[in-house]
Design a protein around this nucleic acid. Sequence first.
DNA 1: CGTCTATTTGAATGTACTCAAAAGCGGTGG
DNA 2: CCACCGCTTTTGAGTACATTCAAATAGACG
Lengths: 200, 200
Amino acid sequence: MIDYDAILTNVGRHARLDEEEAEYFISLLKFRRLERKGLLLKEGQACKYFYYVHAGALRAYCRDGRGRESTIMFAPADWWVTDMYCFLNGRKAMMFIEALEESEVFQLSKAQLDELLERPKFERWFRMLMQNAYTREQLRAIDNLSLSVEERYESFVNKYPHIAKQVTQKQIASYLGVTPEFLSGIVAKKAGRGRGKGAN
Amino acid sequence: MIDYDAILTNVGRHARLDEEEAEYFISLLKFRRLERKGLLLKEGQACKYFYYVHAGALRAYCRDGRGRESTIMFAPADWWVTDMYCFLNGRKAMMFIEALEESEVFQLSKAQLDELLERPKFERWFRMLMQNAYTREQLRAIDNLSLSVEERYESFVNKYPHIAKQVTQKQIASYLGVTPEFLSGIVAKKAGRGRGKGAN
DNA sequence: CGTCTATTTGAATGTACTCAAAAGCGGTGG
DNA sequence: CCACCGCTTTTGAGTACATTCAAATAGACG
């Protein structure tokens, strides 16, 4: 019925699972479907689950005092996402996680993850996820500290060309930490300079 | 001769080691002393080691095209530090790691870490390090995206009061991503408003 | 004590934001 | 299929935030 191939392949990238392990892993997952703009998590809620995006795309963002949104990360198909700090430490969520389009996810609770982590193979798998997430965040921090907005935009598009096509410019602006109006100007300038390479 | 208590206590926070494990761990460490302004790592070098700060304090930073420095992290005593992305992926370093004062570190090579990670207890230890590092970076990213410079400065001082006293204002400015001149103004304004609370 | 660097101050400049309004685009219902 | 609605994108004027450059002062270290 439900297709577990993608998620097993994903986990398999860091842990070679045998039959029993694969079945055990799958037995913990709960499948969930979301309509466009549906929320998996709201600020203030308990953050109970770690999500694997099976289809569609999600966005995690925070809202500050004045209602401005900051996009923390995009999670297209085959990514894992949650408000990790709050999930791991049992705090109330600081983020919203929203479906950018109709999506399907598998969820894993904290207790289930802890159970998984008792097994060395799964601990390695999760260690690799955290390690990659950390280095990715660090590279992002370097970009934010040392590049101009234009360069950050380029860097984003280069790193995540697929995401850049999937999401609105406004959402990219909120990921880069600038206003949509300002990013619009930057993109127009680049398109002007770069004629010839453009689509169509 | 060399005092391993601190580093064993540090590791012990996430992994209860028995005699054999502690000795094995210690056998992998190389002790190293650094004078003030000494460099553990330079941009472009192979990043071979993961460092534990036994005494003193380090700073990891990048330099961009125009020579501007961005501080990635401070590593006071009892912290671990390296250019993690380059260390784990065998790339040439993007960062400098410098001693802010006379310091002592233990170093662990990539091969040694990989050996350690074959043991579940050490894998858990390292997983916890990566997990904490990731969530810390993510919280920093949220601060950078949603707070004003003044608020970011406050947040930094609240999170790391000890570091804030140990490092120069210029270094804090480069951590926050602003010029030292600008931060100077902010700090003066806060001190003016906050009279009465200030240190003598 | 002298040197080197950090910090402060200020003026001029540049970068990014706010607010407002128009134009574009996609989806929905009639 | 068309017309309308809501949201995104664009454009521009005015403003606020942050940088640059320069010079004076203050602190730290040898």
